[in-house]
Design a protein around this nucleic acid. Structure first.
Lengths: 218, 218
DNA sequence: ACGAAAACTTGCGTGCACGCACATTTTCTG
DNA sequence: CAGAAAATGTGCGTGCACGCAAGTTTTCGT
């Protein structure tokens, strides 16, 4: 692995983190999300409320993280796994679509829960930003570390695009969206599947990836 | 104008908002940022603490907004003001650089204050996201509203790039950065002026802008 | 111009995020 | 292996974000 477990300390921390994640999600599913207090989560995980806060900055983050857990790392790994021949833009797009499509039964139920509440939706959207650091690393590697700042900007742009795709996907398509698209005067596709939305959002960034790629390997 | 003042109500709201902004910044400069409570700001602006919360979601946001106030609108206006002949990428870049360079005396002092505290730094970085909505509008306009979602993604990418530039700019260049750049193995420029950083961060996005532009006006 | 409707302010109460200081555990050093 | 050094868990206290339900002001229909 990239990080051989340094010791007992790390394992304990990961165990606690996971216990909190699971407790948060389980309690939120049993009762409503509003009926779960931090105190309950901490108790279910066997730690003090104060310790809970050392792991998560908000109650919503704890619940959402049970679903988004290590998607970040998996996306980076998926990009790195693609053969070196394919366009970087394609590698990233496919990796992202792939990791957001692997929706198990448990994950699906959790998403229904998240969609139901505004605060959880926001936390879920914010979690997309977490893919930036690992993406920066793999992109920089493919670019031979020639332009570290370029990799950073591209990764951040991907994160932003993913966020936009998710935002449009879990929006109930209320009258706000209809009015907006009408005001824009365009015949915009009002909805679509998540993979479609992800590809649509990432497509405009492809030229930027191509340019960066050609600059390092002409 | 685009929005003829609809009535007394709007004017009052803007007045209250500005009063809160000014009070927050002034008090933060007089005493330290830590020595200003929400209650103080509200009192100085002549409203209740609860009302303060109807305008700003956090204490840091109120202070920072006194500096970032309408930069968003000015950037959009600056883009719209460029002649139709220039590349969209250049128009956006120059508009951003321009609006972040107009640093008055008052603004400069405020930035020193903001840089000094972590919470304020974060709020300042988050404020960069505010340029997305107006940028989306002007970009969509230049693209003849042909691809609304493309405009949205490009605007979000610009916001992300600006954030990265600001982040690198106000980082004290501690040992963390040095170690990181060394680990990357590259000869990265450790620091630079804000305009330079902004141009560097926005440059990788230019090909994406060009492609979108050519697609609508061949 | 008048009354209904919509928007804004405010007091109150609840749960929460987080700094600080200290006890405890794990890791590092000689 | 002992003791120093560093990282974590925890109790406590403070200020804050925000929902809710009046009370008040502005807007709008007729």
């Amino acid at each position: 692995m990239t990080t051989p477990p340094r010791g007992l300390r790390e394992r304990k921390k990961q165990a606690t983190r996971e216990a909190l994640r699971e407790a948060a999600l389980r309690l939120a599913m049993e009762r409503g999300p509003d009926q779960v207090r931090v105190e309950d989560i901490a108790e279910a995980a066997g730690v003090s409320p104060r310790t809970y806060n050392n792991y998560f900055a908000s109650r919503e983050q704890a619940i959402v993280s049970a679903v988004t857990a290590d998607r970040e790392a998996r996306i980076a790994a998926a990009v790195a796994a693609r053969p070196a021949g394919v366009r970087l833009a394609d590698a990233v797009t496919e990796a992202v679509v792939e990791q957001y499509t692997n929706t198990g039964e448990r994950e699906h139920k959790a998403l229904v829960l998240i969609t139901a509440q505004a605060a959880l939706r926001d936390a879920f959207l914010d979690s997309a930003a977490g893919i930036e650091p690992p993406l920066t690393a793999v992109i920089a590697e493919r670019l031979d570390n020639a332009e570290a700042h370029t990799a950073r900007v591209l990764a951040a742009s991907v994160a932003a695009a993913v966020r936009i795709a998710l935002e449009g996907w879990l929006r109930p398509a209320g009258k706000a969206e209809a009015a907006e698209s009408f005001a824009a005067g365009g015949l915009v596709v009002p909805s679509g599947s998540l993979p479609d939305r992800l590809r649509m959002a990432l497509a405009p960034l492809a030229p930027a990836f191509d340019a960066a790629e050609q600059r390092t390997q002409p």
